[in-house]
Design a protein around this nucleic acid. Structure first.
Lengths: 339, 339
DNA sequence: GTGAAAGCGCTAACAT
DNA sequence: ATGTTAGCGCTTTCAC
């Protein structure tokens, strides 16, 4: 077992001072040609690589980005991470991923841990529980300490920071408009409870689209799923409860469950009931029928978030503060679950 | 903007020495009761937290685990990460995730980056390209430097390290046996090319199961998918090519595609053709028909890997070296795609 | 009971 | 052209 080489050891080995070694390796003009050659050759031979931790301590920056997300077993977040990774690596940054499990406490804990020098800045999507509590101290605290923060997807107005979001209202309108254009007249929405901002906004988009098309909004056509353990049952009951010719689901699981509920009811998708989802994942693509969906472009969001963060990290500290919000356009992907 | 507090500042503020502050905070008995109280109160008030980087440098350990995986947009890896995260956090470790994108070069680069002091040990699943090349220098190098490494899923014999794998052969046999028990007589397998060890092993399991049951093995019933861009077409052609009454797919995408191919051919799942997959993801669960599958217990694998790594990290360095291989049992989850 | 000093690995201003 | 020194934030040994 051969432990990692340090400058000190090289210096001893070559019988020069540590700083000579350091300068040689960084091609400082102060150093004589021959010494430089010698040192570089030695370093190369033994595959010297500077210690990141020491560099971090010295430079007061770690070149790593902390990502905190509610859950990873979720295709959307996964694509976001992938987007973040790509631009981060491109610019020489590492990514450290923490999961909040949608818990407020874990979110706080993770952030504290990372904020103590481990990272240069945050990219974060707020935990469900945090939104519920409406307590954003930890986020505000972090920006007060001068650590850049980019919020994405589940973002909150109360925190002064860069943001990358989609236009949920517009996306939902797009979905509903699509259904109306395809002849739907009695459209149900399967959404989440209102404290999840995306659920709320998508419901709003649904309502607006109906109104703009001169349709009535019927509260009975709006399902807000509370308990994630009973998604199937709730959706089944909902489908039974009304005479829908189209259903708009705010995520792909709900959409899949909706298709199943329609089937169970003895109706056909898309002939009797059209279904449209939100978030374009594997499930939507592979499902039979494959699901028409509003795509969120997760990896685009990740890329934008990373770019925004790195931009902030690398600008001179005395530039004036300003926060951007990037709205990533949603797309409509038509597949088999609509006519 | 209020930057992070350091020991130095506390010392100045309280007009004591840095070491007094340090000791007070760590409840050293050397320090007088009153000073200790004073320091601790101050630290608490201003929410002092020690700098991780400085601690890492001092202790020569980072309390973080590096995870390198081929891709994240893949439910299995996602569940593994989630498993790793949970036990890591429990034991006070952070997790830093890097993607190799199945590229040899990116795998090497990522590992070099992480190995330079950023982490205490690796959990890794080998990139496709790396397996293809059969070049494991970077892995061996890392263990030679004394950095613990745990390989999971796509593991390689050539590297002396702990391993967490599933018994692919046995899992595949379980799948095929299930099909045979349910009356299948002409079973096709949809696999990957042989340099992907899991593809090879699962194909082997398939063959063994057939032989053990007194069936003939027909090369024409074995599809090895080469080009991931043409999965659908290849599977369609394969389904058309034979008169199968059951198909065993080595992952869930292939299984979903198989169902579709069967449908396109005008046959029914499971009545005419039964289908069974490998890896239990969202897709299998939500698909219609939902897919019978061999489950890999990704999060169990992640947990085991993390436990193995942390165990090694925390044992005294002079204990004798020994490598464990943990085989996580596969399970059979019966759903609608089999009779 | 408190503080000074060394050291983790590295860089850079400042000697020589 | 090379070396010495200080310092990033922290712990710990050793003096006082």
């Amino acid at each position: 077992m051969r432990p990692k080489l340090t400058l000190k050891q090289i210096a001893k080995e070559l019988d020069v001072s540590i700083s000579t070694v350091s300068k040689s390796l960084r091609d400082s003009p102060e150093i004589g040609e021959d010494t430089r050659q010698k040192v570089q050759a030695f370093a190369k031979l033994y595959n010297y690589k500077p210690n990141n931790i020491a560099l971090s301590l010295k430079n007061r920056k770690t070149k790593t980005i902390g990502v905190v997300i509610p859950e990873i077993v979720h295709h959307f977040f996964t694509t976001v991470i992938s987007g973040i990774e790509h631009v981060a690596n491109e610019k020489g940054y590492s990514v450290i991923v923490c999961l909040s499990d949608n818990s407020f406490d874990k979110e706080v804990l993770n952030m504290e841990m990372l904020a103590n020098g481990s990272i240069d800045g945050f990219i974060l999507s707020v935990a469900k529980e945090t939104m519920q509590k409406g307590d954003y101290h930890h986020l505000i605290e972090v920006v007060n300490q001068g650590m850049p923060l980019v919020l994405f997807d589940r973002s909150v107005e109360e925190v002064p920071s860069d943001k990358v979001i989609i236009d949920d209202v517009k996306g939902a309108k797009k979905a509903v408009q699509c259904l109306i254009d395809k002849g739907a007249r009695n459209i149900g929405i399967i959404s989440t409870v209102d404290y999840i901002s995306v659920g709320k906004l998508r419901t709003q988009g649904y309502t607006e689209a109906l109104v703009e098309n001169g349709f009535e909004v019927n509260e009975k056509n709006i399902l807000k799923i509370e308990n994630m353990d009973q998604v199937e049952q709730e959706i089944s009951a909902f489908a039974e409860s009304g005479d829908f010719d189209a259903l708009f689901a705010v995520n792909e699981h709900f959409a899949a469950a909706a298709v199943r509920a329609v089937r169970d009811k003895g109706q056909k998708v898309p002939d009797d009931v059209q279904v449209i989802g939100f978030t374009d994942g594997e499930l939507s693509k592979r499902f039979i029928p494959s699901l028409t969906t509003i795509s969120q472009h997760g990896s685009r969001m990740g890329e934008e978030a990373a770019r925004l963060l790195i931009e902030k990290l690398e600008k001179s500290p005395n530039e004036e503060e300003s926060y951007k919000t990037i709205i990533v356009e949603t797309g409509l992907i038509e597949r088999e679950s609509t006519k």
